Computed example of a mutant assay.
Amino acid sequence: MDNMRIDTDRATRRALIRDVAVAIFSAEPAAVEAATDFEKDLDVDSLLAVEFVVELESVLGVPLHVDQIPALMAGLDRAYDTVAETAGW
Rank of each mutant, 00 (worst) to 15 (best):
E57F: 09
E85M: 06
S58T: 08
S26N: 14
R14G: 04
T8D: 10
I24N: 07
V44P: 04
V20A: 03
A30K: 03
K40H: 06
G75I: 00
D43W: 09
D19P: 01
V53P: 03
R5H: 09
R10S: 08
A49R: 10
A87V: 03
G75F: 01
E28A: 11
T12N: 14
D2F: 15
V54F: 14
P63I: 05
D7F: 11
W89Y: 12
W89I: 08
A84K: 05
L48S: 09
P63V: 11
V59M: 06
T36M: 12
A71Q: 04
V54P: 01
L48V: 02
V62T: 10
F38K: 00
S46D: 09
D67I: 06
I69A: 13
T12Q: 15
I17Q: 05
V66H: 10
Q68S: 07
L64M: 09
L48R: 08
T82K: 00
I6F: 11
A11F: 12
R13P: 05
P29D: 01
R18Y: 02
T36H: 14
V54G: 08
R13N: 14
S46P: 04
R13S: 10
R18A: 11
L76A: 01
E55W: 03
A11T: 14
Y80T: 02
A79D: 02
V83G: 07
Y80S: 00
A84P: 04
L42Y: 03
P63F: 09
T12L: 15
A79S: 09
T82N: 00
